[in-house]
Nucleic acid binder design. Structure first.
Lengths: 194, 194
DNA sequence: TTACAGAAAATGAACGTTCATTCTTTTTTA
DNA sequence: TAAAAAAGAATGAACGTTCATTTTCTGTAA
């Protein structure tokens, strides 16, 4: 009558190996055997933790996305004024993308390829709700342009992904000043008043 | 002593099949056999036109990128005022992404994955020069914020890719009005004066 | 105008390799 | 000690590429 438990360390090692290898080679170019080797585990062991390769990458996506949004909203409170709230969230997102760049690269790759199930994609979007709520408030107060959420995201948040990828390729080095410029551009594009 | 020529139609069919299949399934999930079938050609024939699978996708990328930039600058002249020039180029890019959405999706996927050689990527960037020149002019005239080219691209052009992907997934429908809003946001983020 | 030779182009089948997954056995631990 | 966890070897399918052969086409000679 045993009641062993699968090791959470092993699961984490598998998830981290997946992120690193998929970042370097892409999903279909990373064999399960390589993931296993990097996680110091037998290929067969992966199937104790995940149903199959697709499940492994879906679960990895959802987990990373959850970390991302938790980080983004960690210092934000709904009682903040709209402009301050946006500033706080924006800078947390920027910090995440720069500090946890492997995670951020993985998400960027997932968001632009047919690598992830549509269901898992939906699951990942849910956690952005606080930002959408903030925007709704800003629009009601006349501080933020009356644009759709997709439009606001496209101009205020998504450019950070582009800049992060450029930085990771070595095309750009984002210092503090450039980051402030980026924030200015983001805010300029969504605030009302010219 | 014959002097046959390889059919340009066959080459085009191969390129188009590659775009469509890679868009749907990703690079490593599209077998050469499937590309061949869609192009109505034997798998072996691909190797008369391209060295190997990597070469096929690199060449496809460069060709699509060239079409994209040609389209973008087709109605632009260097004698235009900066603001008008930007407006013209921006709208042409938007038009390309909406009309030739398969091509645009393919480029977006290439730009965020390790699918393409670094050399081919460099090759593709070259053709953007007219836009960089326009920005240099705008900065000199004090019309455009003194930001790096990457920063300007991130805020003025790249959001269109995000919106196009969202539209292709069915999350958004970009009508004329929304497109004008998008242009406004783009211009707001890079013009001087508040 | 036709017939033919020869080379390029195209093909389908075959090859060797790699991969995701499973099977059988061993190890670990409550 | 018994069952879960882990392992390594095995399996069958699928892949990129090549090979041996056939088809297509053009320049030339009759």
């Amino acid at each position: 009558m045993a009641a062993l438990q699968k090791s959470i360390d092993k699961r984490n090692a598998l998830i981290n190996a997946t992120i690193e290898l998929v970042n370097n080679d892409g999903f279909h170019a990373t064999p399960m055997s390589k993931i296993a080797k990097m996680a110091c585990v037998s290929p067969a062991t992966i199937y104790l933790y995940f149903e199959n390769k697709q499940d492994l990458v879906n679960k990895t996506y959802i987990e990373v996305k959850a970390n991302y949004t938790a980080y983004a909203f960690a210092t934000y409170y709904e009682t903040m004024p709209v402009e301050e709230g946006f500033k706080v969230i924006w800078h947390r997102i920027a910090e995440f993308k720069l500090k946890e760049s492997a995670d951020a690269m993985f998400l960027a790759q997932c968001d632009n390829t047919p690598m992830i199930d549509e269901a898992s994609r939906q699951e990942g979007i849910k956690h952005l709700q606080p930002l959408l709520d903030l925007w709704a408030r800003g629009k009601k107060e006349g501080i933020i342009k009356p644009l759709s959420d997709y439009m606001l995201y496209a101009y205020a948040i998504n450019p950070l992904s582009f800049l992060m990828i450029a930085q990771n390729r070595g095309s750009v080095k984002l210092d503090k000043e450039q980051l402030e410029q980026a924030y200015e551009a983001a805010w300029s594009s969504i605030k009302t008043c010219k």
